[in-house]
């Protein structure tokens, strides 16, 4: 049993790997080797930075086709994190418009500039810090996690999923109800960083490791 963290050159994979190692005795592998990725029992698709760079690196490392195939095959659980969630959708408006993997219908949008809150305070972008996630549909990955629990976010763009059935959690920020947890079949993806979200984050990772869709 191996959990492969897909290393296409973007993102801080060490944090994810360390957190997974903390919740499982299974082998955690940070890899870009197609055979290892295919052979793994579970996959983590991380992502940080600009989506143009993430998609670009996925293409450059020739992993895009493999990731698309694995998503369609639905053969093993996959957890997308941060830009790894965003890339699952059709298109992002970041970097002037970037086509993504198109596994789920919907798009990725910017929070906007010069935002103010209800009391007139300046709302910062990126949306950085601990925010509440309202659970939208039941899912095994929510086991042991309270509805409304806080997770750690850092992002300026957010997912707007087109299908209600694909939305598993939402967070309010800057007047937007962001679809911060999405999934379908063997795929579950979160905008926040479970590997940095203390107890609830580790619980979610443990749920992922035990998930048998």
């Amino acid at each position: 049993m191996t959990i492969a963290v897909i290393d296409y050159g973007m993102g801080n994979l060490h944090s994810v790997a360390k957190a997974l190692e903390h919740v499982t005795h299974e082998n955690v592998l940070v890899t870009r080797d197609p055979r290892s990725i295919r052979g793994a029992s579970r996959l983590v698709l991380p992502g940080q930075g600009a989506i143009r760079d993430c998609m670009g690196e996925l293409q450059r490392t020739e992993l895009e086709g493999l990731v698309k195939d694995l998503l369609e095959e639905q053969g093993k659980p996959l957890l997308g994190i941060c830009v790894g969630q965003q890339m699952l959708f059709e298109r992002s408006e970041e970097n002037g418009g970037i086509d993504c993997l198109g596994f789920l219908p919907g798009r990725v949008r910017h929070f906007g500039h010069h935002l103010t809150g209800p009391d007139g305070e300046r709302l910062k972008v990126p949306h950085m810090g601990w925010n509440r996630v309202v659970q939208h549909h039941e899912h095994p990955l929510w086991n042991g996690i309270e509805d409304g629990a806080r997770f750690y976010f850092v992002h300026s763009y957010y997912v707007e999923a087109a299908a209600d059935a694909d939305i598993f959690g939402t967070t309010d920020y800057a007047g937007v109800n962001a679809h911060v947890v999405t999934g379908r079949g063997t795929v579950f993806a979160v905008q926040f960083h479970p590997e940095k979200s203390a107890r609830d984050g580790l619980q979610l990772l443990e749920n992922f490791v035990n998930w048998a869709p």
């Binding site: 810090g129 925010n131 920020y173």
Partner: peptide, 8 residues
């Protein structure tokens, strides 16, 4: 507003 202020 539910984003928490942080203590570091």
């Amino acid at each position: 507003m539910s984003l928490a202020k942080r203590i570091i």
